[in-house]
């Protein structure tokens, strides 16, 4: 569904992606982990051509998104929903209007129908009461969830989640995990999830990829991932108290 072919990306003299190759299959939940600044968000942005590679290609289905322009790019982007790391809600619109915006701009639906769908999507993220509130009045986690509702409002084929659960309490995080699983199971959505939360990565992911200093150092199923011998992966797992057997190991272990 999405394929990175020898993708290189530099900002100035800083190499951020250094020969990155991988393929994401249809309806897969593909997790990207890595330390801060590893190039996770940059990778996501390449999938919708918010950034273009210096060398290499990014494929979406049969299209080379990294070279697409104009209406072709619009057509490719229409297949995506994108939850930005920062939320990226328009400040002067209410939460509900933000969620309905893609429908208002791209469909001929009436206001009432848009309203109904927006409420429905907000309900999925447990925020139906936030419909009329301004983004500035919401907490960081709530903004993120509104943004998630907006990302899925047009039922996209592919959803890019940039840290969907960072800043959320554990209970809400699990709700989001469930939402990602459900959209895949019911609608066959392909999900790419950037996260620091290894617990959710291990429980919902089909494939886990680890980026480190611009390279993909591991690409494995959750089972293989926790057994990985790669030193970077090992220290990453240990930093979250996860052992090779996938158990949580901390002071409170009985």
């Amino acid at each position: 569904m999405i394929r990175f072919e020898q993708v290189h990306k530099k900002f100035g003299r800083r190499t951020v992606l250094d020969d990155v190759n991988f393929e994401i299959k249809k309806s897969e939940i593909f997790i990207i982990v890595g330390l801060s600044g590893a190039g996770k968000s940059v990778s996501l942005k390449h999938m919708v051509r918010l950034l273009s590679p210096d060398a290499g290609k990014v494929w979406v289905g049969d299209d080379v998104v990294s070279e697409a322009t104009g209406t072709e790019l619009e057509r490719i982007r229409a297949r995506f929903g994108y939850l930005f790391q920062s939320g990226a809600l328009l400040q002067w619109m209410s939460a509900g209007e933000n969620v309905g915006l893609p429908l208002r701009e791209h469909t001929r639906m009436g206001d009432e129908e848009i309203d109904r769908i927006a409420r429905e999507k907000l309900k999925l993220v447990h925020l139906e009461e936030a419909y009329d509130r301004a983004p500035a009045d919401l907490s960081g986690g709530m903004r993120k969830r509104v943004s998630l509702a907006r990302a899925i409002v047009r039922n996209p084929e592919i959803v890019l989640y940039d840290e969907p659960t960072s800043g959320l309490d554990p209970l809400t995080s699990r709700t989001i995990d469930k939402l990602i699983l459900e959209t895949r199971n019911q609608l066959g959505v392909t999900s790419i999830v950037v996260t620091h939360d290894l617990h959710s990565a291990l429980s919902i992911g089909d494939t886990i990829a680890m980026l480190h200093e611009g390279r993909m150092v591991e690409l494995a199923t959750p089972k293989q991932f926790i057994a990985s011998k790669h030193p970077v992966v090992r220290s990453f797992l240990e930093s979250q108290y996860i052992t090779t057997r996938g158990e949580w190991e901390g002071n409170a272990t009985p």
């Binding site: 619009e74 982007r77 229409a78 930005f84 790391q85 990226a88 400040q91």
Partner: peptide, 16 residues
């Protein structure tokens, strides 16, 4: 501010 908060990028993704 909209550029910094990725709001402009969000508009582009939504083809607005």
């Amino acid at each position: 501010t909209m550029v910094v908060a990725e709001e402009i990028a969000a508009l582009e993704i939504m083809s607005i």
